[in-house]
Simulated assay, not measured.
Amino acid sequence: MVHGLSAARMALAPGLAVTLLSAPGAALIMGAAWWCALLRDSGHAGPSLLDCADAPGRAAEALALGCQGLILAPAPPGPRSPPRPGATARFSSPPPPPIWS
C-alpha cells in the first residue's frame, strides 16, 4: 500500500514486478491527479490501483486522467420509499458485497 512517493520508490527499489495500491479512499483525499503524478514521478509503468471508495465521480475523474486500475466500492443503499397503497409486491436490491479491509 502506497501513501506517498517515498513508499512507491521503496516498493520499486528491488526491481521486482509490483502492483502499486493506493491507501483506502486516496482518490477522495489526495485526488486522481496526485496518483497520476506519483506514478509518473516514481517511474512506475506497471499495474496500479487507485482506491476511489464509493465515489463514482472520482473514479470517472481518474479514468479521464488515464488511470487504468480503480477500486470502487458499491454505494450505500439510499432511502426506501414507502409502499404504494394497494401494492402487492415489494422489490428490493440485494445487499452489497462485503468490503475487505
Rank of each mutant, 00 (worst) to 15 (best):
residue 96 P to G: 02
residue 94 P to S: 04
residue 89 A to I: 12
residue 53 A to V: 00
residue 35 W to L: 05
residue 74 P to F: 08
residue 37 A to N: 07
residue 45 A to I: 15
residue 34 W to K: 05
residue 21 L to G: 08
residue 52 C to I: 00
residue 7 A to V: 12
residue 99 I to K: 07
residue 85 P to A: 08
residue 41 D to K: 12
residue 74 P to M: 02
residue 8 A to D: 00
residue 15 G to F: 13
residue 77 P to C: 03
residue 9 R to G: 08
residue 19 T to P: 03
residue 83 P to D: 10
residue 58 R to W: 07
residue 38 L to P: 00
residue 84 R to C: 13
residue 96 P to D: 11
residue 67 C to I: 11
residue 49 L to Q: 07
residue 75 A to S: 15
residue 2 V to N: 01
residue 4 G to D: 13
residue 4 G to Y: 10
residue 69 G to P: 01
residue 2 V to T: 06
residue 11 A to L: 14
residue 93 S to I: 14
residue 6 S to H: 14
residue 65 L to K: 02
residue 96 P to S: 04
residue 34 W to S: 02
residue 2 V to K: 00
residue 66 G to S: 10
residue 25 G to K: 05
residue 67 C to S: 07
residue 82 P to S: 15
residue 81 S to N: 15
residue 21 L to P: 07
residue 49 L to H: 11
residue 16 L to N: 08
residue 89 A to Y: 10
residue 72 L to D: 06
residue 71 I to S: 04
residue 89 A to L: 13
residue 30 M to G: 04
residue 9 R to Y: 06
residue 99 I to M: 09
residue 84 R to E: 14
residue 71 I to D: 03
residue 78 G to E: 07
residue 20 L to I: 02
residue 39 L to I: 07
residue 58 R to C: 03
residue 78 G to I: 03
residue 40 R to T: 07
residue 88 T to P: 03
residue 19 T to M: 10
residue 13 A to Q: 11
residue 33 A to I: 09
residue 36 C to I: 09
residue 70 L to M: 11
residue 96 P to N: 04
residue 43 G to N: 05
residue 1 M to L: 14
residue 31 G to E: 10
residue 91 F to H: 14
residue 36 C to H: 13
residue 74 P to T: 07
residue 3 H to D: 15
residue 64 A to D: 13
residue 63 L to R: 14
residue 86 G to S: 08
residue 99 I to C: 12
residue 93 S to P: 09
residue 98 P to K: 06
residue 62 A to C: 06
residue 64 A to N: 11
residue 29 I to N: 10
residue 7 A to P: 02
residue 29 I to E: 02
residue 21 L to Y: 03
residue 92 S to G: 10
residue 42 S to I: 01
residue 50 L to S: 06
residue 59 A to M: 05
residue 32 A to W: 02
residue 55 A to Q: 07
residue 96 P to L: 11
residue 33 A to S: 11
residue 22 S to A: 09
residue 66 G to A: 09
residue 16 L to E: 15
residue 32 A to K: 00
residue 41 D to H: 11
residue 69 G to R: 01
residue 80 R to A: 15
residue 71 I to P: 00
residue 31 G to M: 11
residue 18 V to K: 01
residue 93 S to K: 12
residue 68 Q to M: 10
residue 23 A to E: 10
residue 92 S to D: 13
residue 98 P to E: 08
residue 18 V to Q: 04
residue 50 L to T: 09
residue 15 G to S: 14
residue 19 T to L: 12
residue 54 D to P: 00
residue 64 A to K: 13
residue 31 G to N: 08
residue 43 G to A: 08
residue 2 V to L: 02
residue 82 P to C: 13
residue 27 A to C: 07
residue 95 P to I: 05
residue 79 P to A: 09
residue 14 P to R: 09
residue 64 A to T: 12
residue 95 P to K: 12
residue 61 E to K: 01
